[in-house]
């Protein structure tokens, strides 16, 4: 067992996972640095969710190691892993699984209450986070009275309110429209950056890469450097950007350059690419050629 580099908050080596025999991850290694936003992209079924679940200790890899802050996660007992998840990790689902009988404010305050904070202070900090995410006026509404985008923002606030070390966001924008999608993502990344929270963001949406520091592309359970998607012209730019992103071992300071500097340019081609199909499926179902 090799101890991981010290500056990585999360470090995984050669993860192998199979679901009922069908391989989901075949030898994925990565490191996540403190405070960075890492986008895990790839089409549907490429193992993004499985990778996230491995990293946060919900799922034990059959082979391979996961380290969090220089402690091995893969050797922990389930109870310890659960405590780790509770105390250090946050998780955002594709669907906002809010507690339906609590109001939005109480939903956000709930993690703090579960950790033993008093009613008053949990409510206060929940209120703060809701205000920060622009949904302060929804605090007294039940989830069923909210729009899906608002619910998703409540879920994000709920993940942020405990100030975890790492937030795993598994396709947080999947059920949302394009405008809401950009808004929600920007909210999440801004909040994480301003509070120094590491974010691992899984998405099949190439736009997400524009908001991330680094992008890691998965295809059929492997890390790939380039994904040549069909649709030639439109996705050329995306593919180029995927090419410029590096593997986990080598750092590339300019990685966020093309994404952060020209979000409009990145968003443009992806939007036109998505307009053909439902944008979710267009990429996923397309035949891909890859170069590992």
């Amino acid at each position: 067992m090799v101890a991981p580099p010290d500056n990585d908050v999360l470090w995984a080596r050669a993860l192998h996972v199979t679901h009922n025999g069908s391989p989901a991850l075949t030898g994925v290694s990565l490191g996540v640095r403190e405070g960075e936003i890492l986008a895990v992209t790839g089409p549907r079924g490429s193992g993004k969710t499985t990778l996230l679940r491995c990293l946060c200790g919900q799922l034990l890899p059959e082979q391979g190691e996961v380290w969090f802050n220089s402690t091995p996660v893969h050797t922990m007992t389930p109870v310890v892993r659960e405590r780790l998840r509770r105390d250090r990790f946050g998780w955002i689902d594709p669907e906002p699984h809010l507690v339906p009988e609590l109001t939005a404010g109480e939903n956000v305050a709930l993690p703090l209450m579960l950790r033993g904070a008093s009613h008053r202070e949990s409510k206060a900090s929940a209120r703060e986070w809701l205000d920060r995410l622009d949904i302060g006026d929804c605090a007294r509404k039940r989830p069923h009275a909210l729009l899906q985008a608002q619910r998703q923002r409540v879920a994000i606030a709920r993940a942020l309110v405990t100030m975890p070390s790492v937030i795993f966001a598994d396709e947080p924008t999947a059920p949302l429209h394009r405008a809401d999608r950009a808004h929600v993502l920007r909210t999440l990344t801004t909040a994480a950056r301003s509070h120094g929270i590491t974010v691992v963001l899984a998405s099949h949406d190439a736009e997400v890469a524009a908001l991330a520091d680094r992008t890691l592309t998965l295809l059929d359970g492997r890390r790939v450097n380039t994904v040549h998607l069909p649709g030639v012209k439109e996705t050329e730019k995306t593919a180029e950007r995927a090419e410029t992103t590096e593997t986990a071992e080598t750092d590339e300071p300019g990685a966020d350059g093309p994404g952060a500097d020209e979000p409009g340019a990145a968003a443009g081609p992806a939007r036109s690419a998505g307009s053909g199909g439902d944008s979710d499926d267009a990429e996923g179902r397309a035949a891909c050629s890859l170069s590992v």
Binding site: E82, R85, R86, D87, W91, D93, H97, L98, V99, P100, E101, L110, P111, L114, R115, R158
Partner: peptide, 16 residues
């Protein structure tokens, strides 16, 4: 069941 799994995901102990 949905709510319960969401609560467990939030870190609510099963004893609670």
């Amino acid at each position: 069941a949905d709510t319960t799994s969401a609560l467990l995901q939030l870190g609510a102990p099963a004893a609670m």
